[in-house]
Lab assay of single mutants.
Amino acid sequence: GVRVRALYDYDGQEQDELSFKAGDELTKLGEEDEQGWCRGRLDSGQLGLYPANYVEAI
Rank of each mutant, 00 (worst) to 15 (best):
A22E: 11
Q35N: 10
W37D: 05
A52F: 08
Q13F: 09
D9N: 08
D9P: 11
G45M: 04
D33W: 04
S44E: 08
G30W: 07
E31M: 09
D24T: 12
Y8K: 15
V2N: 15
Y50V: 11
D24P: 00
Q46A: 15
G30L: 05
V2R: 09
E34M: 15
D43W: 06
K21N: 05
L18P: 02
G12Q: 08
R41M: 08
F20W: 00
A52L: 04
D43S: 10
Y54C: 12
V55A: 12
T27C: 12
D24A: 10
V2Y: 05
G30T: 13
D24W: 07
D16V: 09
T27F: 12
Y54L: 12
E31G: 11
L42A: 10
K28L: 08
D9E: 05
E14F: 09
R5N: 02
K28Q: 10
F20E: 01
Q35L: 14
S44C: 15
I58W: 04
E25S: 07
W37H: 14
V4G: 03
R41P: 01
E14M: 07
G45Y: 04
V55L: 03
R41K: 14
E14S: 12
T27E: 06
E17A: 11
G40V: 01
G1V: 10
Q13E: 13
E17R: 14
K21I: 09
G12P: 07
Q35W: 08
F20G: 02
V4W: 03
L7K: 12
L18F: 15
L29C: 12
L47N: 14
L18K: 03
R3K: 08
K28R: 13
A6T: 04
A57I: 13
G1C: 10
W37I: 14
G30C: 14
L47G: 12
E17Y: 11
F20V: 02
P51G: 02
R41N: 02
Y54Q: 12
R39C: 12
R3N: 03
D33V: 11
L29H: 05
A52D: 11
E14L: 13
L18R: 01
L42T: 13
P51C: 08
E56K: 08
A6Q: 03
K28T: 13
R5S: 05
G40Y: 00
Y10M: 05
E25T: 13
R5P: 00
L42S: 11
S19E: 05
L42I: 05
A22Y: 07
R3F: 05
A6H: 00
G36N: 05
V55R: 01
D16H: 07
G48F: 00
F20C: 01
E56P: 02
G12W: 01
G30M: 09
E34Q: 14
Y54G: 04
V55T: 15
Y54I: 11
L7T: 10
F20S: 00
G12R: 08
P51M: 10
L42M: 09
Y8P: 01
A52H: 10
S44R: 05
V4R: 02
N53H: 09
D9L: 01
L26Y: 00
V55W: 00
D43Q: 09
P51S: 07
A22W: 02
L42Q: 05
D33T: 10
L26N: 02
L18M: 06
I58G: 10
C38S: 08
S19C: 08
S19I: 03
F20A: 01
E31P: 15
G12I: 01
D43A: 12
G48H: 00
P51Y: 03
L42H: 15
G23V: 01
A6L: 00
Y10P: 03
I58A: 14
K21E: 08
L47W: 11
S19Q: 04
S19P: 02
T27V: 11
L18S: 00
Y54T: 10
D33E: 15
Q35A: 13
S19D: 05
I58F: 13
E56C: 09
D16M: 07
N53W: 08
K28M: 15
V2C: 14
G12F: 01
R3I: 04
Q15K: 10
Q13C: 10
L47F: 10
D33P: 08
Y8A: 11
Q35V: 05
Y10I: 01
A6N: 00
L26T: 00
K21R: 12
G36Y: 04
L29V: 14
V4M: 11
V55Y: 01
V4P: 00
Q35F: 13
Q13L: 09
V55D: 02
N53M: 15
G12M: 08
D16C: 08
Q15N: 10
S44Y: 03
E56L: 04
E32F: 04
L18Q: 02
Y8S: 12
E56H: 10
Y54M: 15
N53T: 14
W37A: 08
K21A: 09
W37R: 15
N53F: 15
G45S: 03
W37V: 09
Q46R: 12
Y50F: 13
A52E: 09
G30N: 07
L18C: 01
Q13T: 12
K21V: 11
Y50P: 00
R5K: 12
Y10H: 15
A52C: 15
Y8C: 04
E32I: 09
Q13H: 13
A57F: 11
D24H: 05
G12Y: 01
Y8F: 10
K21S: 09
G40C: 01
R41W: 05
W37E: 03
Y8V: 10
Q15V: 12
D9K: 06
E56A: 07
D16Y: 06
C38H: 04
E32L: 08
N53C: 14
D11Y: 09
D33N: 14
L47I: 15
L18A: 01
R3T: 05
V4C: 03
D9F: 01
Y54R: 14
R3D: 01
Q46V: 11
G30S: 12
E25P: 04
K28I: 05
L7R: 08
F20M: 04
E56W: 03
A6E: 01
D9M: 02
F20L: 07
D9Q: 05
K28G: 06
K28V: 11
W37G: 03
Y54H: 11
E34T: 09
G45K: 01
E25F: 12
G23N: 05
Y50H: 03
L47M: 14
L18E: 02
Y50L: 14
K28W: 08
K28E: 12
Q46E: 09
D33K: 06
Y54A: 09
R39K: 12
Q15A: 10
E17S: 12
P51R: 14
E34C: 12
E56F: 04
Q35M: 14
E17H: 14
K21L: 10
G36E: 04
D9I: 02
E56D: 06
V2S: 11
D33F: 06
A57K: 06
A57M: 15
S44F: 02
E31K: 11
V2G: 11
C38P: 02
L18D: 03
C38K: 02
G45P: 01
D11N: 14
G45C: 02
L18H: 01
Q46N: 09
K21D: 07
L42Y: 00
A6Y: 00
R5V: 10
A52M: 13
R39Y: 11
L42F: 03
I58V: 15
V2L: 10
G23E: 05
I58R: 02
E17I: 12
R3Q: 07
S44I: 03
D9S: 12
W37N: 14
Q13R: 14
G36M: 05
R41T: 06
Y50Q: 02
N53K: 09
G48Y: 00
Y10W: 09
D43I: 07
G1L: 02
R5I: 15
G45T: 03
Y50C: 08
D33R: 07
C38D: 04
E25A: 11
G40W: 00
A57L: 13
D43M: 10
D33M: 07
N53I: 04
G36W: 01
D33A: 10
N53R: 13
E32W: 08
Q46K: 09
Y50K: 02
L26S: 02
V55C: 13
R5E: 03
V4N: 02
W37L: 12
G48W: 00
R3V: 04
E56M: 09
Y8M: 06
T27H: 08
G30Y: 06
